[in-house]
Amino acid sequence: MGNVWHNKSNKSVADLDISNCLMEDGETIKMHEENIKENTKKLLNALVIKVFGENIPAYVINSEIKRQWSYLGKFNMTWLWKGWILCAFEDEESLEMVLSNGPWFVKGQIIEVEKWTTSFSSDSLQGLTAPI
């Protein structure tokens, strides 16, 4: 078995033909409506969280949150900018359980929780909650 890094040659972005993916202005990439709808649907049951306090390694946060929320069923975690984590649940009930229960902690540090919206900004702390 050969080295997987050598299986395919890399292509330069400049060599790609993306003309059928561009809007009329020739600069903006077209979004496929079915992909937008599918991704938006997935994010309806998502929240963003941030662990405040000391700098806890990502693997510790990941394993601790998965341990605490395992009873909620399957959910996906995506690491965002500035320490934010997107948690997408399979159903609204699981999302509501996280929002209404708690407080949640990782290594003694409180987890701030916010329902994800299209206006979410990693620079804002507005709307964060942590049940006490």
Rank of each mutant, 00 (worst) to 15 (best):
V4F: 09
S94K: 03
V4W: 06
K30H: 05
A58Y: 07
I56E: 01
A14H: 05
V48T: 07
I36T: 11
E112I: 04
S19G: 04
Y71Q: 06
K74E: 14
G2M: 05
K74Q: 14
F105Y: 13
D91F: 09
D25M: 13
N45D: 13
W104F: 04
C87V: 02
D91Y: 09
I61N: 01
G83Q: 05
V48H: 09
V51A: 08
K37E: 13
V4D: 09
E112V: 05
N20I: 14
M1C: 08
A58R: 12
D15F: 03
V98R: 12
F89K: 05
K115S: 02
S100N: 15
S122D: 08
D17K: 14
E64I: 02
N7S: 07
S124W: 08
I61L: 02
E64P: 01
Q68V: 00
W84S: 01
K107T: 06
G108E: 10
I61P: 01
E38T: 10
A88K: 11
D15Y: 01
T28G: 06
E33N: 09
L128E: 10
W69D: 08
T118R: 07
E92R: 13
I110E: 10
M77A: 02
W81L: 07
N101I: 00
K30A: 03
C87M: 09
S9R: 13
E96F: 05
S122V: 04
W79V: 00
S9A: 10
T129G: 12
S70G: 04
C21V: 06
I29N: 06
I111V: 15
W84P: 00
A14S: 08
I29Y: 15
M77T: 04
